[in-house]
């Protein structure tokens, strides 16, 4: 460095810009109007006796309601577990080079997307009447296990299964859209490295597809939370919607109980949305040129060290 004749280029010192920020008066006016309208609505609702806020308060944390909310959450969870798992399998089948797998997946989608979920749930409720005995074994030859499923209390099981199998058909299309959004070069690069098709799917394609898959899946979870109100078709009656309706029926006051149920649905949805935010952030890693706050800090530190080192020399 010292042998160089030319003087080192000194960074020109310039004053940092302190500009007057752009004002947005209309935003403030708009916000004031919206707040005023919202305030008027809340005041109106609070002073309107027909809402029966005393009943709302009495039942918001009622044991039956919170248990029902927990049941609804469990239903949502199991239905989505079935839906996502089977959905991924179906999507991969639809994109497989194997025509047998492809047609089977297509048939599944055709049937489960083509009939109403309510009808499917009624069907699963009647399953025990259609097939009262299940036998496991080789058809026409030998059965080694018999199960009389009419004796089982299987409403929760069939409700989750019915919702999950229906959901799988929709998830399959979401996952397929995600997979096809990953550029072909990715599969090629993985193949050229000697990776098998399944390894390529698992390690390269699906993690990238997740970015496309998660937002609509978040939609599906939230939608599922509310679709659970249909499980009365099975009939499964311990979910949030059916429970509040039973209480409301006895009290003869539908509005406050509906508000109770809505509050619970809204609370659960909010928690799910927070979860979705973190999931999205995880799978978005590497997708942007923008450096994360931590990376910026590290780079700034490295820059400061480099300058400090140069100055000391």
């Amino acid at each position: 460095m010292t042998s160089v004749k030319k003087p080192p280029v000194e960074p020109a010192q310039a004053e940092a810009i302190a500009a007057v920020p752009l004002r947005h008066p209309w935003r403030w006016i708009g916000a004031a109007i919206v707040l005023l309208l919202a305030g008027l609505f809340v005041y109106g609702a609070a002073t309107n006796g027909n809402y029966h806020w005393d009943t709302y308060r009495a039942y918001l944390f009622d044991r039956r309601i919170s248990t029902a909310a927990w049941n609804t959450l469990q239903l949502t969870f199991w239905a989505m577990v079935i839906g996502v798992t089977l959905g991924v399998v179906l999507a991969v089948m639809r994109l497989s080079p194997n025509p047998v797998l492809r047609s089977a997946a297509w048939m599944y989608l055709w049937i489960f997307r083509g009939t109403p979920v309510y009808v499917q749930l009624v069907f699963w409720g009647l399953f025990t009447s259609l097939y009262p005995h299940l036998a496991f074994g080789i058809p026409f030859v030998h059965q080694f296990a018999h199960l009389n499923i009419q004796t089982l209390n299987a409403a929760f099981f069939f409700a989750s299964l019915g919702l999950g199998l229906n959901e799988a058909a929709y998830m399959a299309e979401i996952v397929r859209a995600g997979i096809t959004s990953v550029p072909e070069g990715q599969t090629e690069a993985a193949t050229a490295l000697g990776m098998s098709w399944s390894l390529t799917m698992r390690r390269i394609v699906l993690p990238q597809a997740m970015r496309v898959i998660i937002p609509p899946t978040g939609n599906e979870v939230i939608s599922m939370l509310k679709t659970t109100s249909l499980v009365v078709a099975v009939p499964y009656t311990l979910d949030l919607y059916t429970t509040q309706r039973e209480i409301a029926g006895v009290l003869y006051r539908p509005v406050p109980l509906l508000l109770v149920a809505s509050t619970w649905y809204l609370a659960i949805t909010s928690i799910l949305m927070i979860g979705q935010h973190y999931l999205e952030r995880y799978f978005a890693r590497g997708s942007s040129r923008h450096l994360t706050a931590r990376q910026l800090r590290e780079l700034a530190k490295a820059q400061a060290q480099a300058q400090g080192g140069a100055g000391a020399r």
Binding site: A189, R285, S287
Partner: peptide
């Protein structure tokens, strides 16, 4: 490859 095809994630 011409377009690198690095795994972006």
């Amino acid at each position: 490859f011409q377009h690198f095809n690095l795994f972006p994630h």
